[in-house]
Design a protein around this nucleic acid. Structure first.
Lengths: 134, 134
DNA sequence: CGGGATCCTAGGGGATACTG
DNA sequence: CAGTATCCCCTAGGATCCCG
């Protein structure tokens, strides 16, 4: 097999796996890619279901990875904006094929649910992890 | 923002995230894609570091997802071979951009380490999670 | 050889309360 | 507003043993 291309080793993936494995990471990358710059609470509502701790945590991680940029303004009230770096944008582009593949598999129209479905109440609860409202 | 393409929602990703999040899933998909068909212990050595339970577990998951096929031969000694399904192959193709992106980021040559580096001693231990041999 | 059953652990992630 | 700190729970995943 593998006649369709060279054999690709997963070594490079090692570094990415723990990033994309971070349940919310891709969500953040994506929402940020779609909206440009967002503030903490905008992300909170956009992701709806994430806890502040987890958001902060993931945000820090992505920041360290150089995927997103954090800009704080010393104002009252405080304002902090997050946006993708070039790297983050490339990551977003890189996972698009994956999204399309997933979309085809699950019968999503993919472009038809942009505005409303970025919030996922039962996000990861598909297997047997009720969100709480269940 | 998002001028390069339509806004992509992550709904479809919900289903994929828990697959790609499975630390070893992509490794298995890839190794299987490169080697065609592999037996349990071949996977064990190829992944080197995975526990039989986890391998079995992940194998089952991927099987249920229809990404790989399991063929058991009633012989002595028993032989079981795993190979990608068409879907699995598509997934592999879908994550290639991701791999290339990761490879570029980390300075891998990506095609230069195929034969030897599919085993990762310190696979996920990059951040501070020594494998045990450390 | 393949892999199921069991046990155990680290830590990811949610909730809540509190602070700068 | 934008976090941080704390607590707790739960699941993924490693180790081990054993069976077909």
């Amino acid at each position: 097999m593998a006649e369709e291309s060279v054999q690709v080793c997963l070594c490079p993936l090692e570094g990415v796996i723990d990033t994309i494995s971070k349940k919310w990471a891709l969500l953040i990358i994506n929402i940020l890619g779609n909206h440009g710059r967002l503030r903490f609470n905008e992300l909170m509502s956009g992701l709806e279901g994430i806890s502040p701790k987890t958001l902060t945590d993931t945000l820090h991680l992505l920041q360290e990875e150089g995927l997103l940029r954090r800009e704080a303004f010393a104002e009252i009230p405080p304002r902090v904006e997050y946006s993708l770096t070039a790297d983050g944008g490339e990551l977003l582009a890189a996972i698009r094929p994956l999204i399309r593949w997933a979309a085809r598999r699950e019968g999503f129209s993919e472009t038809g649910c942009s505005p409303h479905c970025r919030r996922g109440p039962g996000h990861h609860g598909r297997k047997g992890k009720p969100v709480k409202s269940a």
